[in-house]
Design a protein around this nucleic acid. Sequence first.
DNA 1: TGATTCACG
DNA 2: GACGTACGTGAATCAG
Length: 936
Amino acid sequence: MTFGKGSHLHLIDGSAFIFRAYHALPPLTRKSDGLPVGAVAGFCNMLFRYVEGNSGPDAPTHAAVIFDYSSKTFRNELYPLYKAQRPEPPEDLRPQFPLTRDATRAFNICCLEVEDYEADDIIATLSCQARDAGGRVTIISSDKDLMQLVGDGVEMFDAMKNKRIDREEVFEKFGVYPEKVVDVQALAGDSVDNIPGAPGIGIKTAALLINEYGDLETLLERAGEIKQPKRRQVLQDHAEQIRISRKLVELHCDMPVPITLDELEVRRPDPQVLTEFLNLMEFRTLTKRVAEKLGVDAPLPAPTPVAEARDAPAPVPSLEQLPFDHAAYTCIRDEAVLIEWIGMIRERGYVALDTETTGLDEMRADLVGICLAVEPGKAAYIPLGHRSGSGDLFGSAALAEGQLPMQVVLDALKPVLEDPAILKIGQNMKYDAKMLSRYGIDVAPIDDTMLMSYAMHSGLHGHGMDTLAEQYLSHSCIPIKSLLGSGKSAITFDLVPIDEAVKYAAEDADVTLRLWQLFKPQLHQVRVTTVYETLERPLVPVLAEMERAGIRVDRDVLSRMSNAFAQKMAALEAEIHELAGERFNIGSPKQLGEILFDKMSLQGGKKGKTGAYGTGADVLEDLAAEGHDLPARVLDWRQISKLKSTYTDALQDHIHPETGRVHTCYSIAGANTGRLASTDPNLQNIPIRSEEGRRIRTAFVAEPGKKLIALDYSQIELRILAHMADIPALREAFRQGHDIHAMTASEMFNVPLEGMDPSIRRQAKAINFGVIYGISGFGLARNLRIPRDQAQRFIDTYFERFPGIRDYMDRTVSEAREQGFVTTLFGRKIHTPEINSKGPTAGFARRAAINAPIQGSAADIIRRAMIRMPDAIAHLPARMLLQVHDELLFEVDEAAVDDTIAAVRQVMEQAADPVVRLSVPLVVDAGQGDSWAEAH
DNA sequence: TGATTCACG
DNA sequence: GACGTACGTGAATCAG
């Protein structure tokens, strides 16, 4: 087909694809020879997804993937420093560049690169040709340097955000429409690409100037007319540099392209060629998936050149590529079959296990069925508590036919599940272990695929089964919604027909087993075996115990507080409506914003990106400080409302009817840094900072005759920073037991420790915290409510006095850039896939990378303490109940309070030993009382 | 469902 | 006078 009217050309920014793929995936290598292929794998996945998604009315008629030929181009002649400070691509990415070209061709998509030109120029030239021929163009990229091309039938598509970029989007970003984007870029420059621009002028100012003078040339000619002297000077002094900058950012629409548009016509991939290429790369799952899609047989895996030991046992039949066959799963309905399966488990020494229940709350849900898998594709479901759909009016349906009695099954399985020689594999085993422990079975030993993934892939993606199956087995699990429905009409698993349940449940165990076989050897390759074995796996039984124990909560205390809050709120509500002169929903930020800034026209109203006024506490506090009553009352109302809805009301619903206690659930793999997270309810954010909120802690009480004791690490993150960054002054202060913030203040402001002004100490404290968070002048200024330049001076002084801190930060960031992850003191890896992105994301990623080793090391330390705790307190009448990041809460017989504090403190303070010898001591503070309020 | 707000370390 | 920011979480609520 000739390219012309009605044609639609897709131009894919190949280099962007490669880098994204590289950073999104762990460093995979080809099994047979160790060739790094992670980026190629990701690239192929993206291309496949792209091809799959290309159907429908807006499908392209023509397409090409565009690459950079090399990093040297004609622009370097123009300006030698252009992109000069770009880091070299990582060593293991280099050999993958040519493979991505091969991959593109294997997909039967034209791939293009031209010596001396950037991919962007090729994209520009082809876009112009296509537009001139009357066709449409979509550029698949989010690179801002391409935005100058948008308009007149040319659009961009950000594949990452799944968002189109049109003229208006460009205007939002640059403050001008596409035809003026180069002018703005020329003025603003770009530090990433080393485009000089005009010093001190950013995009905002540049857009302002261009909009005023029309275009860059006019602006430069008439620069003398500019009123601001500094701006005028800059433009006059740097006119030449700005003109060069413009040449650097302007894309070439007329470069020689060795191909015509007609040749880019979309072609179907040749199944043979494509699957052979994927097979050569040894992407087994992708090969299979593509073959399925194209309706051909997957080629046989290439023989591994490494001589296979002849007498080695037959390899486990090749696993993750075996298709999922739901019809092949067994349903165990009689004892003979059950015994047969138990035999198979004993023979192998491991089994993947999954329990099905009536709900997600292990403390309240009932067991409905158990599923076992012994080989990929070989799984069996044992229905135990299914009920036939037609129950009586009260929903108490009778047990369905054809199920073994629960007790018979549990009795038969118990020896296997508790056998120390048989490994039980689960996905989030804490859930299943807790469930089964309620039925008298202590599952051990265990492996957990969720935790394996967490140890290997933290920061890359979530670790739920669906995500993992999708990512590593290219398999989409049956959604539970398809069985249970959703919303009001949702049913519980016991009402699902057994035939349906078999497929779903057995699939889960099957997937778990396949993931385990895939992950187990990888743990070692990625060097996180120690992390998994010492920080993840042993934590499961410890947390399960804590969650089962729960903490006693006094309902009456909460309920009385709720009533008091309700009255207070009603009074405040009346007062606020009075002040506003009308009734409105105080809980609605939108309505509140309109009242404050439109109706009352108070100053300081700032609209965010959604166009709504900000009404956060900081904004309202500023208004209140100016003497406005309404915002002050709203702040009061908000505080009470929060306490009531989140704490005094919701917490009551979480009191277990039988135990009278609240049983939170900890997610081990929730937070990227290694911290735990607490849910249903969250007991890690019970108020303490405000006096009013603190009272909620009086509702958390010890049983009669017992006490609560709380022990928390003092300044653990700062101590870790002092150790990791090796700051002698901080280290010494901690060794001497000095007040660390006062010491910092004294160093920074040259004031004596004696009689220090508390506000000076407060500022030093804020800086100390800021450092842990990846400090910025802006952030510190906002936190301390001081001018920005002053905040920046503080930071400069801090870095001068403690130069090691800056070194540490720089080291950490470059480590993240080079490896794609940072590590804690104990070897936990936290991936930083966005560290090399541009724009505001870069700032976020940078700060997160700086913070992660510190927060993560602290998390590792308390994990180590928790894991050792059961043995350390076994001889005491004490139970560990809660963890709040740097604090542990125990319930103990009154008589043993002191002994327990001593034992726990010992474990906590020595928790880093012997793996890490900290150069600072860890110090633990302890408290005790009848309630959490007293103990803290 | 996403944005906003706010509780904690 | 800058692209825009403190790090990590979970829950309740509003609005579309």
